[in-house]
Computed example of a mutant assay.
Amino acid sequence: MGQRIPLLEVKDFTLQFKQYGRGLKQIETRVISGFTLDVHAGEIVAVVGASGSGKSLLAHAILGILPSNAATGGSLKFKGEELSQSLKERLRGKEISLIPQSVSYLDPLMTTGKQIESPLRKAANAVKSVMNRFQLGDDAKNKYPFQLSGGMARRVLIGTALTSGAELVIADEPTPGLHKSMVDETLGSLKELAALGRGVLMITHDIDLAFVVADRIAVFNKGLTVEVADAKAFEASPDNVKHPYSKALWHALPQNGFHSVRGKDYGEEIDAGCDAGEEDDA
């Protein structure tokens, strides 16, 4: 039997930005270097790294929504086909769906009900089912984004993406600001998608969430994939991962001592970027 073709294949991916420095001198800033991972149908792969490390830019590159001063290298493939900009635009919101980090992705001129209904193209009862699942009352259906709380707006984004029918769902920090019940519902929904044969790429700084939901964890540091490890093995012991940065992340977790490690073996201090971000979003 031949090897399965991944839904998403990222190989030696690089990303840099052209900017102007002093005196109109143009400089290039590289934020991702040699990033490699794959996501197969039926699995959840989590990309874990510090906040502000550039993880979200990978999602934007896959979807083709990078700013005009971005330059990329390496390879991005969907189901074995190179992702050109035109293909990204055709797949975006259909075969590849995004749960974005920012609620600003909601259309300010469209009501909640219409935003959920748009990718579904289904009857009103389907919209009602989604809204009930994510605890959005009947009155929220006719509200515009500016009328929603931050937590409600995030739930609309999650509900819309998870019911889009996409084969690949990219969840970019999907849970900050949500009540624990909604965090659990969101993670459960991601697991359901994988059980249905879809692929999920979850981008997060919260390694504890990755342990709960992911099959594999790609550890991201300074624009590089330093290691891809089995999530359950990684959770059990730092001895199950090879890279010093991965080991340091494990030791930085609260249940493992909440240690920040500095020294020649790690090269830098690793802080536990694993705050739950779970607060009441009523």
Score class of each variant (00 low, 15 high):
residue 77 K to A: 03
residue 57 L to T: 03
residue 121 R to F: 11
residue 268 E to N: 12
residue 220 F to K: 01
residue 270 I to T: 12
residue 135 Q to C: 13
residue 202 M to C: 04
residue 235 E to I: 03
residue 260 S to F: 10
residue 250 W to V: 05
residue 241 V to Y: 03
residue 86 S to R: 12
residue 127 V to D: 02
residue 117 E to W: 11
residue 197 G to A: 10
residue 9 E to S: 13
residue 261 V to G: 09
residue 214 A to L: 05
residue 239 D to M: 11
residue 241 V to S: 04
residue 139 D to R: 14
residue 59 A to R: 00
residue 251 H to A: 15
residue 31 V to C: 06
residue 188 G to C: 06
residue 2 G to A: 15
residue 98 L to W: 06
residue 148 L to Q: 10
residue 36 T to V: 07
residue 184 D to P: 04
residue 188 G to T: 02
residue 152 M to R: 06
residue 228 V to E: 07
residue 74 G to K: 03
residue 84 S to R: 12
residue 20 Y to V: 12
residue 41 A to S: 14
residue 263 G to C: 07
residue 121 R to N: 14
residue 170 I to Y: 00
residue 242 K to V: 14
residue 169 V to M: 03
residue 32 I to S: 00
residue 185 E to H: 04
residue 237 S to W: 10
residue 261 V to D: 09
residue 181 S to A: 15
residue 17 F to T: 03
residue 232 K to R: 15
residue 15 L to N: 02
residue 30 R to D: 08
residue 56 S to T: 10
residue 90 R to L: 11
residue 30 R to G: 09
residue 249 L to D: 02
residue 161 A to T: 03
residue 4 R to D: 14
residue 83 L to P: 00
residue 126 A to D: 13
residue 86 S to G: 07
residue 70 A to S: 11
residue 112 T to D: 08
residue 257 G to I: 11
residue 112 T to H: 07
residue 231 A to Y: 02
residue 256 N to Y: 09
residue 207 I to S: 02
residue 115 Q to K: 09
residue 237 S to G: 10
residue 157 L to M: 13
residue 282 A to K: 13
residue 172 D to T: 05
residue 98 L to R: 01
residue 81 E to Q: 14
residue 179 H to N: 14
residue 131 M to G: 04
residue 26 Q to F: 04
residue 52 G to K: 08
residue 184 D to K: 13
residue 209 L to K: 05
residue 191 K to E: 12
residue 17 F to C: 05
residue 149 S to Q: 09
residue 62 I to A: 05
residue 271 D to Q: 13
residue 157 L to Q: 03
residue 117 E to G: 10
residue 102 S to Q: 15
residue 233 A to L: 15
residue 134 F to I: 05
residue 76 L to N: 00
residue 118 S to I: 11
residue 138 D to V: 12
residue 130 V to Y: 01
residue 255 Q to Y: 11
residue 116 I to G: 00
residue 275 D to I: 13
residue 106 L to W: 06
residue 68 S to R: 15
residue 174 P to R: 04
residue 174 P to H: 05
residue 52 G to F: 08
residue 254 P to G: 11
residue 179 H to Y: 10
residue 3 Q to H: 13
residue 248 A to P: 08
residue 250 W to P: 07
residue 49 G to R: 01
residue 279 E to R: 13
residue 195 A to D: 08
residue 21 G to S: 10
residue 59 A to W: 00
residue 165 G to Q: 07
residue 176 P to S: 11
residue 83 L to A: 01
residue 168 L to R: 01
residue 204 T to S: 10
residue 261 V to S: 14
residue 179 H to F: 07
residue 46 A to T: 01
residue 204 T to Q: 05
residue 276 A to Y: 12
residue 175 T to M: 04
residue 36 T to S: 15
residue 226 V to L: 10
residue 78 F to Q: 02
residue 112 T to M: 10
residue 100 P to T: 06
residue 122 K to T: 06
residue 46 A to N: 02
residue 210 A to D: 03
residue 253 L to N: 07
residue 212 V to L: 14
residue 77 K to N: 07
residue 127 V to A: 04
residue 104 S to T: 14
residue 50 A to I: 06
residue 41 A to K: 06
residue 188 G to N: 09
residue 86 S to L: 09
residue 5 I to R: 12
residue 41 A to R: 08
residue 34 G to L: 05
residue 107 D to Y: 10
residue 198 R to Y: 00
residue 47 V to E: 01
residue 21 G to N: 08
residue 5 I to M: 15
residue 262 R to S: 15
residue 22 R to N: 13
residue 187 L to V: 07
residue 90 R to F: 05
residue 259 H to D: 15
